[in-house]
Amino acid sequence: MSVFIHHLSTLVPPHAYSQEQLCARLTEWQQNPLTARLTRQLFRRSAIARRYSVLPDFHPETEPELFHRDGRGRLLAPSTGARNACYVRHANDLSVQLARQTLAECQEFDASDITHVITVSCTGFYNPGPDYAIVTQLGLPPSVERYHLGFMGCYAALPALRMAQQFCRTRPDAVVLVICLELCSLHLQLSDQPDSALANTLFSDGAAAALVSARPPSGKKPALVLEHFRSALATEGKKDMAWTVGDSGFNLVLSSYVPEVIAANIAALVDDLLLDTPRCRQELDWWAVHPGGRAILDQVEKSLDLRAEQITDSRSVLRDYGNMSSATILFVLQRLLERRETVPRSVCAMAFGPGLTIETALLEMRPATCGRMGNQPKESAALAAA
């Protein structure tokens, strides 16, 4: 049974900042001139143009919501409780707004069709959470099954899609709404640790949703077929990427060795993903690589011997949004769907997180068929309708 991503929708909070603005603000906040110098170097090499936040705090003349100063003008480190309270204030509204937007954009489904809601986040906790808000505020049946994947990190969207696929295969009438929401800017750390300086260069706030069902697509717009998933661990990278709860927010370990660890493992892992399929790596059309940073994209492109255009959507998402943790890979897949292909295309998606965990997925992009079936080659038309 084929299971499809019928629609992808994305949302960012209202406060947009250029990298130049953020660099100026963060170096102003730094007490250590050596750390400020490192920050400027990392920003110059980031390949990011703009990032988003729920916080107005990075505008110089705006009353801050989270990052306040003491009487001597020194920046105070917000507690974990204060950061999480900020998450609670924003997460409900953004989740509900995104769920409404997704259903409004995908008119093949309405709220009464939803049978499962899967929420994903590693940047805050509360219960009842966004899943509850979506069900109650959109008027979904109270019998809707709700699941949450928490604190997994940047790779979590792919396990959420695999869970949705399994639900749909078990229950053919299932319609699963997946919501990934990450407010990474709440956990900004102004320490002298290089890991913190690197994280402050990369991470951003954003949310993305997927509507997943075994219902055949209408053909009015392109869809993605969820084919195969594979999980793997590169345990030699365990010390290089980790995510823990501290007294002053969540603490990220993100060493500069992460791109090398991924590069050393990724080719074999993709081959493993394709083991039970008729495809080989060289035959895949498009690559949706989680843009964890410029160096990660560079290493994946080199290790897999990809053409630059095969991961251009990953680079453009990094440029336009930064790293939004679990939501980011759905932004990349959305851009692939916007290509408006006229024949089916294979897609390999991958994302990375603590452990070092590497998740991969094989998908097929099905083009829109309405209004041009007669112009397609017979083989393409048959495949699109299958």
Rank of each mutant, 00 (worst) to 15 (best):
H6N: 05
L8V: 06
L8K: 02
T10L: 10
A24E: 09
N32K: 02
P33A: 00
T39A: 15
R40Y: 09
Q41H: 11
R50Y: 07
Y52M: 09
S53K: 01
L55K: 11
P56S: 04
T62V: 11
L75F: 04
L76K: 06
T80D: 04
R83M: 00
V88P: 05
V96A: 03
Q97E: 12
Q107E: 14
F109L: 01
D110A: 10
D113L: 15
H116N: 06
T119G: 09
G124L: 01
F125S: 06
G129Y: 05
A133S: 15
V144L: 00
L158D: 00
L158C: 02
F167C: 08
R169K: 15
D173F: 08
V178R: 03
I179Q: 12
L183R: 02
C184T: 15
D192P: 05
D195P: 06
A197Y: 10
N200H: 01
T201Q: 00
T201K: 00
G206I: 02
L211P: 12
P216Q: 03
K220I: 10
P222A: 07
R230T: 14
A234Y: 03
D240T: 12
W243Q: 05
V245I: 09
G246V: 03
D247C: 07
L254V: 07
I266P: 03
A267Y: 08
V270M: 08
L273W: 00
L275E: 09
Q282K: 12
L284F: 02
D285M: 11
A288N: 03
P291A: 07
G293P: 06
L304M: 11
A308R: 08
I311D: 09
I311Y: 04
D313L: 14
S316V: 11
V317N: 02
G322N: 07
S326C: 14
I329Y: 11
V332W: 06
L337H: 04
E341C: 10
P344E: 03
A361I: 08
L363P: 00
Q376G: 02
P377L: 04
A386W: 08
